[in-house]
Computed example of a mutant assay.
Amino acid sequence: MASESVKVVVRCRPLNDREKAMNCKTVISIDSSHCQCFIEKPGATEEPPKQFTFDGTYYINHSTEQIYNEIAYPLVEGVTEGYNGTIFAYGQTGSGKSFTMQGVLDPPSQRGIIPRAFEHIFETIQVTSLYLM
């Protein structure tokens, strides 16, 4: 692995069915090119949104597949080479940790980081086993 570092990445999950039924509105916007997240206070039209900058930002339209390829794949690849790696999902209840880490079966692009990482690791083991035979 080229370097060691801690990266902080944020993902905005889509509204769930309960939130849609309650006519909730999204108060977060993302500028992925600048890795910035903006949070608006509902009803505060005169108040500018809070701005936060991260190492990576992903909005509702980003798939878990894209997040895996850009963030987790290099980490898992390093693990298969013998380096330590950790993905730590943190956030309040309902913020989307399970949505990102476990994912959903349909659509396949939203399969989670955990099943993708296992598949990646087992494919590497299988290829290495065939190579050693």
Rank of each mutant, 00 (worst) to 15 (best):
F88A: 03
D55V: 05
D55H: 14
I67N: 01
F88C: 05
G78P: 07
G56L: 03
E81F: 06
Y73T: 15
T64R: 10
T53N: 02
S98W: 06
P49H: 10
H62C: 15
G91K: 06
H62Y: 07
A89P: 12
K50M: 13
T57W: 01
G82L: 06
E47N: 06
N84V: 09
V76G: 00
E65M: 10
G96K: 04
S95K: 07
N84H: 15
Q66A: 06
S95H: 02
G78E: 10
G85Y: 07
S95G: 00
I87Q: 04
S98H: 10
Y58I: 02
H62F: 03
I71F: 04
G78C: 06
T80G: 00
F52S: 07
T64V: 09
D55L: 11
A72E: 10
Y59F: 15
K97C: 09
K97V: 04
P49C: 03
G91E: 08
G91W: 05
Y83Q: 07
P74M: 09
I87A: 01
V79F: 12
S98Q: 11
Y59D: 15
I71M: 14
T53P: 00
P74E: 09
H62P: 04
V79L: 13
T57G: 02
T93P: 12
Q66E: 13
E46T: 13
V76Q: 05
G56I: 08
I67K: 00
P49D: 11
Y90R: 12
P74Q: 04
F54D: 12
N84L: 06
G94T: 10
Y59W: 15
T80N: 11
Y68H: 04
A72V: 15
E81M: 12
S98T: 15
Q51H: 08
E65K: 15
G94S: 07
E70A: 12
F54P: 09
Q66W: 07
Q66N: 07
G56W: 10
G91D: 02
Y73W: 14
N61Q: 15
Y73D: 14
G96F: 14
P74H: 05
Y90G: 05
P49N: 11
I67S: 03
T64A: 08
Q51S: 12
E81Q: 14
S63C: 09
G91C: 06
I71H: 02
L75K: 08
F54T: 08
A89F: 14
F88R: 07
Q66L: 06
E77Y: 13
F52I: 13
I71N: 01
N69M: 04
E46I: 02
G94M: 13
G78Q: 07
E70P: 00
I60C: 03
P74C: 00
P48F: 01
T57A: 15
S63H: 08
E77I: 00
N84K: 01
T53C: 13
N84F: 08
T80P: 00
G56N: 08
V76C: 00
N69L: 06
Y58P: 00
G94F: 03
T53W: 08
P74V: 12
P48A: 13
K97W: 01
F88T: 04
T53R: 11
G82S: 03
Q51M: 15
T93F: 03
Y68I: 10
T93D: 00
I67D: 05
T64C: 07
E81L: 10
F54M: 02
